[in-house]
Simulated scan of single mutants.
Amino acid sequence: MMGGTVISLRGATKQFGGLVAVDNVSFEVREHEVMGLIGPNGSGKSTTLNLISGALPATDGDIALKGQEITGLPARDIARKGVARTFQLVRLLPSMNVIENVMAGAVFGHRRRWGASAERHAKQVLETVGLADKAKAHTSQLTYIDTKRVELARALAGEPEVLLLDEWLAGLNPTELTEGIDLIHRLRDEGRTIILVEHVMDAIRSLCDACVVMSSGKKIAEGTTDEVLSDPEVIRAYLGDDDA
């Protein structure tokens, strides 16, 4: 059951000096939808996530969360309103163990928790991502997928309504990838709205209800995953075949 619009971008634009990294991009993400943000490297996908999360201010355009303007708000305020994200490069706090990292997310997130409440909640979240047995482990002892799970747990600890996943599945082996896809399915079934920047086509086909395709900062296609992936312009953008 899709609900109303949760995130909407209207003419979102980001310039870095003379470079237009995101060029007049508009799209909407509906409640409980998994939206894929896809396209070749350097097409502006991560920058678009940064605009939504407030990590970067938009140069122009409007971004709204449930009809409420969030353009120009600091990242921490947007997180408080219920938007959490993961990063391409995992950013764990090395001085803290796994559960402390997750509790840090609970403190800064949408629903703030402290002390015993934060710890109980962090344990639940670690169970969700399959890390209950590693709560006291030091982050330096973790495998690659487990560091990614901790980062996801930290994002989830704030109980976000919207989850932004920036290539969260990148670098996983086939077994881990299957586990990762299952995990994202479960999060969606719990009622979250998810925007994911992803290159793994199996994951995109399996997870995404809809996709927005970007190329050189512009939106070149939008629609259901099947429609978009069979669009000749999208195929051309990915293959980089200018003669096609």
Rank of each mutant, 00 (worst) to 15 (best):
S215W: 05
M214C: 06
V25Q: 00
A79F: 02
P57M: 10
I145E: 09
E227W: 10
R10A: 13
F27M: 05
V200N: 14
A132V: 13
Y144V: 03
H32A: 15
G240C: 03
K136V: 15
L142M: 10
T193R: 07
V20L: 07
D60Q: 15
A155N: 02
E151S: 00
T139Y: 04
E179D: 12
E127Q: 14
F27N: 01
E227V: 12
H121K: 01
D166W: 00
A244P: 08
P174M: 04
A135E: 14
G67P: 04
L229T: 05
M214V: 06
A210K: 12
G44K: 04
G67E: 07
G42H: 00
E69K: 15
L169N: 09
P94T: 11
V6N: 04
L65R: 01
L163V: 04
L229D: 04
G3E: 07
A75M: 10
V20S: 10
S216M: 13
E198I: 10
F108N: 14
L92C: 05
S206I: 11
E227D: 15
V98F: 03
D23H: 07
V107D: 14
G72E: 12
L156I: 03
L89V: 15
G36P: 00
V102Q: 09
P57I: 10
H32C: 13
K81H: 08
L183T: 02
L93F: 13
A153V: 03
S140Y: 09
A221D: 05
I63A: 00
A116L: 11
L131F: 09
W114P: 11
D166V: 03
E127I: 10
K134N: 12
T225S: 04
A21E: 08
K14L: 08
G158H: 06
R236E: 03
N24P: 08
T71G: 14
H199D: 02
G82H: 04
R192T: 07
R111H: 14
L152I: 06
